[in-house]
Amino acid sequence: MKTLKDASGGLLIALTGLVFLIGARNFAVGDLRNIGPGFFPVALSVLAIAAGLLITTLDVIKKAHAQMSMDLRALACVAAAIIVYAALLERAGVLVTTVLAVFILALARRPLRPLETLLLGTGLSAFIWAAFVLGLGMPLSLFPDILQ
């Protein structure tokens, strides 16, 4: 298990390289004298895979690579807040989306302060609406579409 943890950083790089290598399978590589659109992607993918495997090997041999522990709860809350924005911003408007996202972010830490969070969410919505919609002219509405 410990070995797997040491190995996973480099494996992650190698895996990313592999995904890009598979994605590049249909690009014309060309030859060294006249390189095609696939030359750089293939070369970089192979280099990434090699570097990833080398990192894995070194990390497993050294065993003692300092790693930050992953904070899954914080990651889940922040990711969920971004998903709320991606899914709702155009449909539900700035106010609902922002208040919802701010509440999800507030769940990352205890204790939950409902009133403070609500005030922060509302104030933030007002600021975003004023700065981005009124100021910069982004095509977003403050309230959900059904109200208009």
Binding site: V78, A81, I82, Y85, A86, A87, L89, E90, V94, T98, A101, V102, L105, A106, L120, G121, L124, I128, F132, L136, M138, P139, L140
Partner: peptide, 23 residues
């Protein structure tokens, strides 16, 4: 932190007015 997340998501939306960039 909520301010940063909100500004990031709304700001990146404005790049091409599309939620694709938020994803």
């Amino acid at each position: 932190f909520p301010v940063i997340v909100a500004l990031v998501c709304t700001g990146v939306y404005g790049v091409s007015n599309s939620v694709f960039d938020i994803w």
